[in-house]
Amino acid sequence: MNRKLVIGVGNRDRGDDAAGCLVAEQLRKIAGGHFDVVESAGDISELLEYFEKYEEVILIDAVCSPEAHEVLRWNGITDRLPTILSGASSHVLGVAQALELARALNLLPRCLSIFGIPGKEFGYGVPLSSQTVRHIEWVCQQIILE
């Protein structure tokens, strides 16, 4: 098992919310065994299990923010995370809440890098926006380069 994991968070049926999943899909094809790749719906218990297993985690998720046009980046260890990361229903903690809970429990990995891909369309079954398609390619390149 690698020590590095890429987690693509999202929902493939909700337009640009698929961004994290599609980054994971592309990286799985080209990662060449340098790191592990998983898709996730962002479930807190699942994320914490990954954090326990890996020292270095890269997490990609769509963000919903009218002001954001470029890919956002956070250091998950030192930065306070905004709620625009996967806001979800109260029965499913959003990614930001999940990460804050992991922080409170001292269960964050040693390194946690977060990419937030700004989305425009989050409707049921709608296609990806062209902006998101570009952002997905850029994030994949960044992860490979780094």
Partner: peptide, 25 residues
């Protein structure tokens, strides 16, 4: 106010709850 605040004082219990949830999942 929420589980995140609670986790700071009751980490063992919150982790236990997450393990339970994961078993069901």
């Amino acid at each position: 106010d929420d589980a995140i605040q609670m986790a700071k004082r009751f980490p063992k219990h919150v982790v236990s709850g997450l393990h339970l949830k994961k078993a069901g999942n």
